[in-house]
């Protein structure tokens, strides 16, 4: 299992579009990918799941990756977070 903590800097927070793009990226990996915010978890491959966390600017999230290709997944998805959110 791999984890990556990230604080959202985008002032709009995790809006629908970035949530969708993120889900798309995540869906390309076979492993289980979860986003955790304040103890609430959501499947990172699902746009509605991510949106339901209501992640706002300045909030801390944890990306949790488990299973096949987790190394690649955490690397690519954490880069996505840093570049887009």
């Amino acid at each position: 299992m791999k984890e990556f903590n990230y604080k959202i800097t985008d002032e709009l927070g995790v809006h629908a579009r970035p949530a969708g793009l993120f889900a798309k990226e995540a869906a390309a990996f076979p492993c289980k990918i979860t986003i955790v915010k304040d103890g609430k978890e959501a499947d990172a491959k699902r746009i509605f799941g991510i949106m339901s966390l209501g992640i706002k600017a300045g909030q801390e999230i944890t990306l949790r990756v488990e299973g096949e290709k987790e190394e690649e997944a955490i690397a690519q998805l954490s880069r996505f977070l840093q570049e887009n959110l």
């Binding site: 969708g20 499947d43 699902r46």
Partner: peptide, 9 residues
Amino acid sequence: QMMLDDLDY
């Protein structure tokens, strides 16, 4: 389009 592909949905 992304929403229509949501697995939960």
